[in-house]
Simulated assay, not measured.
Amino acid sequence: MKKIILTVALFLVSVITITAQNWQTDFTLAKDISSKEHKPIILVFQGSDWCGPCIKLDHEIWSTDAFKNYADKNYVMLQADFPKRKKNALPEAQTKANAKLAEAYNKNGIFPFVVVLNAKGEVLGETSYKKTTPENYIKEINAFTK
């Protein structure tokens, strides 16, 4: 019985790992990956536990198979989260790193805010939540990189 439970647990972890979006949280690492793989960076400012449009953007775009599959091959995904609930608090170093990103790229404090960057950290385009399909969102983001 323990072997069956362990096997099922391992299977579920592998499925979750395969279908999870590959989010970076370190800007320097994201730029390095972007440079090596020749992919633009999608920097997402979100309030994962309080911002309604942020949660919708995650469910309707970022978490879809269509977007995840495309993003894995074409983008470096960078997340700057600003949770409010104590139980979701980020480590202090990550909170400071996210604040530094916000100072540079989100001075107006818009949530959600999506910034498309090149490997040098230069802004190619900006957008936010839109009620659309993953495919149309991809088209919009791709237009920034042309």
Results as ranks from 00 to 15, higher is better:
residue 139 K to M: 09
residue 143 A to N: 12
residue 124 L to W: 03
residue 125 G to L: 08
residue 145 T to A: 11
residue 117 L to D: 05
residue 130 K to R: 14
residue 22 N to D: 15
residue 122 E to P: 01
residue 43 L to W: 07
residue 22 N to Q: 14
residue 27 F to I: 06
residue 115 V to R: 02
residue 143 A to Q: 09
residue 59 H to A: 14
residue 58 D to A: 15
residue 99 A to V: 04
residue 80 A to L: 09
residue 130 K to I: 02
residue 60 E to W: 08
residue 43 L to K: 02
residue 104 A to V: 13
residue 78 L to Y: 02
residue 66 A to E: 14
residue 67 F to H: 02
residue 36 K to F: 04
residue 89 A to G: 01
residue 61 I to A: 05
residue 118 N to G: 09
residue 34 S to H: 03
residue 122 E to T: 08
residue 99 A to D: 07
residue 89 A to L: 00
residue 135 E to H: 04
residue 46 Q to L: 12
residue 72 D to T: 06
residue 41 I to P: 13
residue 74 N to I: 06
residue 62 W to H: 12
residue 56 K to I: 05
residue 72 D to F: 06
residue 114 V to A: 08
residue 50 W to L: 05
residue 37 E to Y: 06
residue 116 V to R: 04
residue 52 G to S: 13
residue 76 V to C: 07
residue 127 T to P: 08
residue 128 S to C: 12
residue 138 I to A: 13
residue 72 D to E: 13
residue 50 W to F: 13
residue 108 N to A: 14
residue 43 L to Q: 06
residue 140 E to M: 14
residue 115 V to Y: 02
residue 73 K to V: 04
residue 31 K to W: 02
residue 78 L to E: 04
residue 41 I to H: 06
residue 79 Q to D: 12
residue 129 Y to G: 01
residue 36 K to T: 10
residue 53 P to Y: 09
residue 122 E to Q: 11
residue 124 L to G: 05
residue 74 N to K: 13
residue 58 D to M: 10
residue 104 A to L: 15
residue 38 H to N: 15
residue 106 N to M: 05
residue 106 N to W: 00
residue 92 E to N: 11
residue 144 F to P: 02
residue 22 N to K: 13
residue 89 A to D: 03
residue 76 V to Y: 03
residue 138 I to P: 11
residue 27 F to V: 11
residue 83 P to H: 09
residue 23 W to P: 02
residue 71 A to S: 08
residue 126 E to H: 10
residue 74 N to E: 11
residue 68 K to W: 03
residue 37 E to D: 12
residue 46 Q to G: 13
residue 26 D to T: 07
residue 44 V to D: 09
residue 51 C to T: 06
residue 118 N to F: 12
residue 144 F to C: 03
residue 65 D to G: 12
residue 85 R to C: 01
